[in-house]
Amino acid sequence: MQESSRSLWIYALSVATFFGASSAPTPLYRLYQEAWGFTPATLTIVFGTYAFSLLVALLMTGSLSDYLGRKPVILGGIALEIVSMFVFAQAHNVQVLIIARGLQGVATGAATSALGAAILDASRDRGALINTLAPLFGMGLGALGAGMLVAHAPWPMTLIYVVLIALLLAEGGLTLSLRETVAPIPGALAALVPRVHVPRSARGAMLRVAPVNIAVWALGGFYLSLGPNLARIVTSSNDVTVGGWVVFALTTSGLAAVVVLRGLATLRLLTVGAIALVAGLLITLWAVHAGSAMIFFIGTIIAGTGFGSAFQGAVRSVLPLAAAHERAGLMAAFYVLSYLAFSVPAIVAGTLAHSIGLRPTTNLYGVALAFLSVLTLLASTLSKESGRNVEQSCKAR
């Protein structure tokens, strides 16, 4: 195997592991709630701690690998992620759980932009696709795998973290064997000053895809925090694996959409994603009111199709526009937007669910995300019309 292909798959596996670790606690939340007696609002604070610490790490270390090289930043992230897994495994109250989530957020934030940039270094052609597939694959497998281990294996609140530690150690060893793709340059300390940098060449695209990217990540945040509780209400089941299956349905359908629809033009991919997201959300809301588990999963799968398509369209619209020395910084900016959408709406939803109930909160959440998706459809229509006008103008000349 060529060095670039080997690097591509090792870094892709690492991204999947980080995102798998981020969703692994989801099926365990019910066990934590039963053991320590905290509310859905506290649950979303636990979830939000991860996302906000990740944001801080992205702001401070997002472009660090452009100065130090990819490998030192990735290895540092892996080391801190292993520490967070140890803390998860030893957690005995919600305060320790919050500390574990905070450490995990810092580790993921430090490693994510470096890994994404390293994937683009390894393959500019396949990099955007891999950067779309790996997080979806990881999140789905992490949630489902954790649910299965909780239900069918010993040490339900510990074993998944032991498995993840083993994977991370292996990936750290493989990363050490890879060739560095970025020569260190001065300026690393200055790069730690929190900032978001979107290269001028990518700003217009970033603005156009912002509404649907926010909708996609807000949907993911809701499913990873309150999705299992909603699924248990709709399915009337106390099976701990239900939460894992819901997240798996969302992310796997997204993964399938990425693979099947990857040949579409970027603008059309965004349009298809936005339409599927709206349709899936409306069907899911219908299922919540009807109390139908089958319709709920169908809606989730359709929404997941929109999730994958729109996310791929957003990634393809933005990330290839940066030069090599701007990639990590742009990845950081893209993920700052994504994780703000991932965390803030979920925390608001958790607070609302505590005061007005989960079903009304789901209605408000779904309508808001559908509105954002419609904005993207309007933006896509305007982009097409603008493109036609420019083309006609050029022909007239």
Results as ranks from 00 to 15, higher is better:
T300Q: 02
T300K: 01
I301G: 12
A303P: 09
A303S: 11
A303D: 01
G304Q: 03
G304I: 00
G304C: 01
G304R: 00
T305F: 03
T305V: 02
G306F: 02
F307P: 01
F307N: 00
F307Y: 06
F307K: 01
G308I: 00
G308P: 02
S309M: 00
A310F: 05
A310P: 08
F311C: 02
Q312H: 02
Q312K: 01
Q312M: 05
G313Y: 01
G313I: 07
A314D: 07
A314N: 09
V315N: 11
R316P: 07
R316I: 13
S317E: 15
V318S: 14
V318A: 13
L319W: 05
L319P: 08
P320W: 15
P320C: 15
L321K: 15
L321N: 14
A322K: 08
A322H: 10
A322Y: 13
A323Q: 15
A324C: 12
A324F: 14
A324H: 14
H325L: 12
E326W: 13
R327S: 11
R327W: 12
A328L: 05
A328K: 06
A328T: 03
L330Y: 11
A333E: 01
F334I: 05
F334N: 03
F334D: 00
Y335R: 04
Y335W: 08
V336R: 01
V336Q: 04
L337W: 08
S338I: 04
Y339N: 05
Y339D: 06
L340E: 01
L340Y: 12
L340W: 11
A341N: 10
A341M: 13
A341W: 09
A341P: 13
F342L: 08
F342C: 05
S343R: 09
V344T: 13
P345E: 04
P345Y: 10
P345D: 09
A346D: 05
A346C: 13
I347V: 14
I347Y: 11
I347G: 09
V348E: 12
V348D: 10
V348M: 11
A349I: 11
A349G: 11
G350L: 10
G350A: 10
T351K: 09
T351Q: 11
